[in-house]
Design a protein around this nucleic acid. Structure first.
Lengths: 191, 191
DNA sequence: TTTTATTGATTGACGGATCAATAAAAAAAC
DNA sequence: GTTTTTTTATTGATCCGTCAATCAATAAAA
């Protein structure tokens, strides 16, 4: 029953299924078979539309990053004052969606694969660049050295996320509070 | 030619070979065969002494963490004033040895596996706890809220390491400088 | 002769990729 | 307006490679 124009639908279903499988497995140790099954198709079709496992993963990671970006844009859209913009960036980074098992798993694998796969590395650099740019822009009017502040705050966000996502002791809320406290210090300090 | 007491020698050789292979591959995608070959023995012997691949990896990661700990202890041993202790912790975290390909690869895989393998997770928690404890101790005499400061600085170190290790733009030295700047701010601030 | 050391060979499973075959819609030909 | 052809969709079966793990066999020290 080949209905035409299946490609985008299938691709989207596969990406979604991949994210779901990553969430279920907690890592990228999922087979194409599992993904295809969840997406309701055969492994052959998955290969047909994506070419290979690696490209399916890349698409899934791109989707997660894209979702995150949407959340950032959305949160930034409704605020005007700089301080609130920085707070919005922090809020987006520690939003509940960022701590969904699938997101955490994908994120950790992104780090692990970035050392070897150039395309994965490019995705990571893209994320870091965007965050730094957004932070610099938010800090420009309220911080003596926006560049340095953004670099610091960006790294802090990543580090806090790491701990909140992996250690059950640290909660997302506590991480967020720590980031906000750092923002306070950053604004009120002379460096 | 069975010389007696081979076990510790073989185990050490395997651990060292594992670290070297991780460095060469940039990730944990190395086979027991590769490791055993580099260590100068058969795969069967590797299994004989370790039981399984996972345990070889755990031992290798434990070794890396142990090496790091030694470096920390060594650096802490020769300083007395609190400020210098905090600086020593930062210096250890951004020492060249931490940026060896094998170390970076092992570290990233540690994060990735921590979500699924409890033993790996335990290793990570151990590292985080030690760093926090060391930082808290160093900050106690010179910071209004040593706990909060340590949590912040610890996360910042991890985040900066992530960027310095993965993005070729950010250098270890720049990361270290940023951490030291944060330390300055932390000491001089009221939170 | 028992224990420790060691390996070559093998097994068994898994998983990514491929391909030939089927089905139906669309387009082209008549 | 029917027939033919082409294009798109889809899958079952299968191939091929990899790799962790096992085992039986060998050798030497105790």
């Amino acid at each position: 029953m080949p209905k035409l124009g299946m490609e985008p639908i299938r691709r989207a279903a596969l990406v979604q299924a991949t994210i779901a499988e990553i969430g279920a497995a907690g890592s990228l140790d999922v087979t194409v078979g599992q993904i295809a099954k969840r997406a309701g198709m055969s492994t052959a079709l998955a290969h047909h539309y994506f070419g290979g496992k690696h490209q399916i993963f890349l698409a899934a990671m791109g989707q997660i990053l894209s979702d995150f970006r949407s959340e950032v844009v959305e949160k930034l859209r409704i605020v005007r004052i700089p301080r609130a913009r920085a707070e919005a960036l922090i809020a987006a980074s520690f939003a509940p969606s960022c701590f969904a098992p699938a997101t955490v798993g994908a994120w950790m694998t992104l780090y692990a694969h970035a050392t070897t796969h150039p395309e994965t590395h490019r995705l990571l650099v893209l994320y870091q660049r965007r965050l730094r740019s957004n932070l610099t822009h938010a800090l420009r009017p309220i911080c003596a050295d926006p560049r340095a502040g953004a670099e610091m705050l960006g790294a802090l966000i990543d580090g806090l996320y790491l701990r909140a996502a992996l250690a059950e002791e640290a909660s997302p809320d506590a991480a967020k509070a720590t980031a906000l406290r750092a923002l306070d210090t950053l604004i009120g300090a002379r460096t």
